[in-house]
Simulated assay, not measured.
Amino acid sequence: MTNLDLFSPPPAPVRVPPPGPGPLDRLLKVARIYLEPGVVEHARGREILARFPDAERVEVPSHQNIPGLFGNAGNVEAWNRIKGSTLVLGVKKTLSFVANDRSSDFIAPSTANGCVMACAYCYVPRNKGYANPVTVFVNIDRISEALRKHAHKRGPKLAPNSVDPRCWVYDIGCNSDCSADAALSDNVRDLVRLFTTLPNAKGSFATKRVNRELLTYEPQGKTRVRFSLMPHAQAKLLDVRTDPIAERIAAIDDFVAAGYEVHLNFSPVVLQEGWQAAYAELFQQVDAGIGAKAKAQLACEIIFLTHNAGLHEVNLRWHPKAEAVLWTPETQETKVSQGGGVNVRYRTGFKGRHVAEFKDLLARHLPYCRVRYAF
């Protein structure tokens, strides 16, 4: 057996999901599917289309340019209606890997972008104009092969870092929520399975949804799930169409038992009056809600809010109450992101003091929760 053979996943049978209601039925009742011409050439594309046989199909030249959908300011008022009725199917053209030193070592080529959920602070809509339905990419075979080759080329991880001590970690859900994606296709299951065959690599994704079908995937410790948490009252305002915070916490032990590494993602931390008491209550809820096995492996990332002027203007037209806490010019300053985007964040100095205060509060209530990074 060659070294390359160690990275080759065994062949998997094609599974055609049955049509009809599924885990996302409350959030997504697909009435219209936009699809690129090449979608039907892929087995995954045909599987997804079979799941929604009654949906109108509209062929478009590109998933990135859909006339009347993206860039149409009139769609803002229909923000959640579009999310709840529209699906886009595309073929991923660019299979690039982006180096990252926070949540992962690399951001993998995405198998989806956009989301059926509608968190008010989400950065993905900044790139999709005035509508942000979920787009699923159907060429999972090419994406998986690119991941396999990239991991093989990297070889062993010789020096531990804050991401992981042994494995190269690939974020597979940077532009979507994999728990929701898994209810639309088998893309996520295929990736979780792939990582069990890569001795030097691990998958990772953050989620605000509990999809218990993932408990059947047998990840063997090679996929990290980061449950995103914020205080309950704040989540009710900002985490639109997501699962309740209590349900996310209640799922942690089950995901650990199923073979996932489970971390917490305190993101975004939105500062408003009384935040210290609200987070202390959240930390106590976590402590009371998880068992010894989960606590022994627990780590977290802490990400303070980054916002965007364009998204602010969009949000004012569909969810202005959220902007009352997200857009606070008196405490924010302009920031150029790693990707070159012009955003706003909490002011230097002001932010640093509150990051330190957050970490101290966490250490008092969850002393076993290691902080992988905070910014």
Rank of each mutant, 00 (worst) to 15 (best):
R317K: 14
L361A: 07
G84F: 07
P17W: 05
A277E: 15
T94M: 10
S85E: 14
P329H: 12
L366W: 00
A258M: 08
D5Y: 08
V60P: 00
M230R: 03
T334S: 12
A183K: 06
N343P: 02
R81T: 15
N343F: 07
A363P: 02
R148N: 12
Y123W: 14
L6P: 06
F137N: 00
A250R: 09
R353Q: 04
C174T: 06
C300G: 09
P156G: 15
F52R: 00
A309H: 13
V355W: 06
Y34L: 01
T94G: 12
V256K: 00
V40Q: 05
L194M: 11
P268I: 08
S8L: 13
G114V: 10
I303K: 04
E218M: 09
L191M: 13
P244D: 06
L298I: 07
A292G: 08
L147T: 06
P21Y: 11
I172L: 13
A201Q: 03
P320N: 12
F358N: 00
L27F: 13
I249C: 01
A73H: 14
L316W: 11
N343I: 02
S267M: 09
F304G: 05
L298Y: 07
R241M: 09
A324C: 12
K351D: 12
H307G: 14
V325F: 04
A324Y: 10
P109I: 10
G349T: 06
T242D: 05
V269W: 01
G310M: 07
F106V: 12
A146Q: 06
A258G: 09
H354T: 04
K153T: 15
V270N: 06
R370G: 04
H312S: 14
E213R: 13
A180Q: 04
K202T: 01
E47K: 11
Q284A: 15
G45D: 03
R212N: 10
S267G: 10
V355T: 13
N72Y: 09
E145C: 03
N132F: 05
W318F: 15
P268T: 07
A50N: 15
F304E: 11
N175Q: 13
N127H: 13
V240E: 02
Q285N: 11
D239M: 02
